[in-house]
Design a binder for these strands. Structure first.
Lengths: 183, 183
DNA sequence: ACCTGCATGTAATTAGTTACATGATTTT
DNA sequence: AAAATCATGTAACTAATTACATGCAGGT
């Protein structure tokens, strides 16, 4: 399951340009399947080669030609197979948790920066989801489910950090101010 | 921040072979920074080239020579810098959530399989963490923190699935049994 | 008999990220 | 004056995964 498959997924809902698809990714998949232009444009080229999509160029005034992609029936079949074939993996790669794990190696100031920015980033995602939920215009169940999942995880994460950051911040402070730890 | 850095981190606690490090990864990092032999052995070779570790070969009876790696002072400095330089990123790549998002495209049977196996996998991780917590032998605060974080996330995830899987399973069933949905 | 643990690695492939390259229009 | 929006892409690089390759010892 790769960016190609997700692009087909978006195109199964509506025709779109690469640019549109990037925006869709940001709104819908950013918290569980991030992708940038550097992976989306090549993915669309490959899908076109394989006949999973067609492309119509539309000239524009003072802007590059728009390339509108549409899914083909081969693409539809391919997407359905790919989505069912997925093994349900769920992978986390967290620099943040590595830094937390080795908190004693980091200065208290730097550690605070790292934790604060992580919490801020999660809070921003949480706000974005709240905004989406504000107008639930007949979304499919899967959309609601994955949005709710993201919300639940982000809420759990921010709560955990708020309640437990003292554990690592204490350790880091103790390392650089041993006199206080001893007192 | 890559596998090389994590290897240095492990070696900052104790000398180890590639094999040992792999086991350490499984116990400690698996839920936020997975890595296999295919990334650990090459990482150690590179660290050796860069002088961040030394290596002593120890002959063994009927087994390949053991290569014991030890961190150097250059490695220690490098590790400290790398850990502080990390930007605290936290990335999720989830095939499972993609499948949930497009649940209507999957047969109810297959969807159930996928959800069940995901829950089982999370439950297994949760059990592993519980086991670790059973004997808290003076671990550094960071270890406790990241373990607790994993636990909190896994608990939130499994709870969410249990309470909300009907949303997607209903959608999938409706798609393949339209007569029931209409009734 | 088979699987797990111990112990090493390489090679090919896959995939994604980052930076580069261009440029008008509209909003702040 | 600067930033964001619209709109396209490529090239170099980074990094990790997967499969391959070997082989004994001990447990079930």
């Amino acid at each position: 399951m790769d960016v190609k498959t997700l692009c087909l997924g978006v195109l199964s809902y509506q025709e779109a340009t690469g640019y549109d698809i990037k925006k869709y990714f940001e709104n819908a998949f950013s918290h569980f399947f991030p992708a940038g232009y550097g992976s989306i444009y090549p993915a669309l080229s490959q899908l076109l080669e394989n006949g999973h999509v067609t492309c119509t160029e539309q000239a524009q005034d003072k802007l590059p030609d728009k390339k509108i992609y549409r899914i083909t029936s081969s693409g539809q079949a391919h997407f359905k197979a790919a989505i069912a074939a997925g093994n349900g993996s769920h992978k986390v790669r967290s620099e943040f948790l590595v830094q937390a794990y080795f908190a004693e190696m980091i200065s208290p100031e730097r550690l605070k920066e790292v934790v604060d920015s992580r919490v801020a980033s999660w809070q921003a995602s949480l706000d974005a989801i709240s905004e989406h939920k504000a107008n639930p215009e007949g979304w499919p169940a899967g959309v609601l489910f994955s949005m709710g999942f993201g919300e639940a995880m982000l809420a759990a994460a921010t709560t955990y950090i708020r309640e437990n950051r003292h554990l690592i911040e204490g350790a880091s402070a103790a390392a650089s101010h041993p006199e206080k730890a001893a007192a």
